[in-house]
Design a protein around this nucleic acid. Structure first.
Lengths: 334, 334
DNA sequence: TTGAAAGCGCTAACAC
DNA sequence: GTGTTAGCGCTTTCAA
């Protein structure tokens, strides 16, 4: 491996001079600079960023933790984050918690020992508070993504879960539905709670009686919610419409209903948060509240970098990104 | 930041003793070990992996470079790679070249300065050879993913592009098609060349005359190939079937054809390599040669780690993963 | 079983 | 403009 000292010797200067050339700091004569640069070229020198990090106490490395790498919402978010990181000269370390607190904990340990300069953190749920406090105690800046965590004050980029859920439910009510089921993520996840509240709000505003037998909790991943259709249909009086709290749940429900001979939207309408967009799907079918996933990532990254560079101010900032209601074929008038 | 020295002082031992406890090396009395461990706990010590890397000359960090982070083929592959890396105690740095040699070059520089222990590399194309030689000269082990690069001898995990393309084309011929168009990636990408060859092979075997006006080249990303439908339909005698060399191209073509009033599959059949699977799509529509994306990642990672740990032998290994032909509604008898 | 010294590759701080 | 010294946090080597 070529080091600064090899360059220094060849170019007949001190290590410091080489360091100055590399970093463009201090005053260097043009002659020396040229000579050093040439030797660097010849020897194919590449700086050792570990050595640099060790002395500078910063790694120029950031970390992004998401909860489901198979979900297009998060991969699109990841892209936004990566673009913004690269623009600012940071590398990005990715992690995937799979909605699992154990894996999340492992990841936090990794992050701590890697000494990344900051973390973009999509928490698995409320119990992530422990992990976030670990980061706080070590002085690692972070920005919360998509979900808030009670008891943790930090910058965050959130969606309008409550509002979006309310609008989706209202849409169903406007179509004449009154028996509207909801399938949701776990209640220890803030978005699940807020989407539930939005649902209740819409029912109240629309003068639709609330029936607890129509509400089911699963989780947010593709694996969750496969059996949901049974639960839905087994209600004393089954629903005519379903609000699914995310894209995977919606897919599972539509599949499950169809398998049982229930047609969507003819027999049952389905709406959801986050869809799969036009990118992957030929004929997008689901009526959905679309969230600007890319902006979750890029904005979050921007907040994080501002925070790291001390351009942020003491109090946490809160960004709420509105969703867009896209009406498609999966919802239909009763 | 808590260091080894803080622990050493508190526990009344030398730094070396602490180091030994951390790494479980050497002989330590149970008493000392317990004392050190307790202090570590109390102070919340987390090892500084940069300092360790600097002296050990290894980072326990690997890197994965893919060419299109928006393509489910690659995100699934990434998941396989990540799982395998974690199983073996490695961290994973992600990168995305967007099929662009410039971005790829930047990424290689980054990789070099980060001193990762190895790279899983999905090359943008043949010109990636320069970048790969850079890695070779620096002694950074890598495994090629999905695409081979002429002139570069290295471990690799590839699909059966030629075979898969042949089978897809044969499928169309069996359905009675004889005017079969192909839309392809750039010819400086090995998979594009091989898929083209497979297409030609099938034509020859099926006694179908080859018409160069039916072959079009675009690129592999969603952005490419939007205008392809025009080119296809403007042929003197337009095709009755289209073989698209990947998933995004297929989606673009179907959209383009529909926009121009051409029905798929009634007027034109479409088949492709890599689809979007059942994970995102309610009613998968495309007849496709499905590749085992997850295994590309996990197997590639396994090869890489073996290579790094010297368990590999001198000559490059070559793994070919077969694709699976899934027949759906987008292809139909003439 | 434990410790002292040296050094991984780099840069901050201070000379000259 | 350029050089010297010291040290970032850890492990290797050798000694006790």
């Amino acid at each position: 491996m070529v080091t600064i000292y090899d360059i220094a010797k060849q170019a007949n200067v001190s290590a410091m001079t080489v360091s100055r050339v590399i970093n463009n700091t201090g005053r260097i004569s043009e002659a020396t600079r040229a000579r050093v640069k040439q030797v660097m070229e010849e020897l194919g020198y590449v700086p050792n960023s570990m050595a640099r990090s060790l002395v500078k106490q910063e790694t120029k490395m950031l970390s992004l933790l998401i909860t489901d790498i198979t979900n297009p919402f998060y991969t699109t978010l990841a892209r936004g984050a990566e673009d913004a990181a690269k623009r600012n000269g940071y590398k990005l370390l990715f992690g995937n918690s799979d909605e699992d607190y154990g894996k999340e904990r492992d990841y936090v340990d990794m992050v701590l020992s890697t000494r990344v300069d900051g973390v973009l953190f999509a928490p698995a749920g409320d119990a992530s508070a422990d992990h976030l406090r670990l980061l706080q105690r070590r002085g690692v800046p972070f920005v919360l993504l998509d979900r808030e965590v009670p008891g943790i004050a930090a910058d965050r980029v959130l969606g309008d879960s409550r509002e979006g859920a309310r609008r989706l439910t209202e849409h169903l009510i406007e179509l004449g539905h009154r028996r509207i089921a909801m399938i949701n993520g776990r209640q220890d996840v803030s978005t699940a709670r807020l989407r539930y509240q939005g649902y209740l709000e819409a029912l109240k505003l629309g003068d639709v009686p609330f029936d607890p037998s129509l509400v089911h909790e699963a989780g947010y991943t593709a694996a969750d919610g496969v059996e949901l259709a049974d639960a839905l249909l087994s209600a004393p009086e089954p629903p005519t419409a379903v609000f699914a709290a995310n894209n995977f749940l919606a897919l599972a429900v539509v599949r499950g209903l169809r398998d049982r001979g229930v047609r969507v939207p003819d027999d049952v309408s389905v709406v959801c948060f986050d869809d799969f967009g036009e990118t992957f799907v030929l004929d997008p079918f689901l009526t959905a509240a679309q969230q600007p996933a890319y902006e979750f990532g890029s904005l979050g990254m921007q907040l994080l970098i501002e925070r790291i560079q001390g351009a942020a101010g003491a109090e946490p900032r809160n960004v709420v990104l509105p969703s867009r209601l896209v009406i498609r074929q999966s919802s239909k008038a009763l």
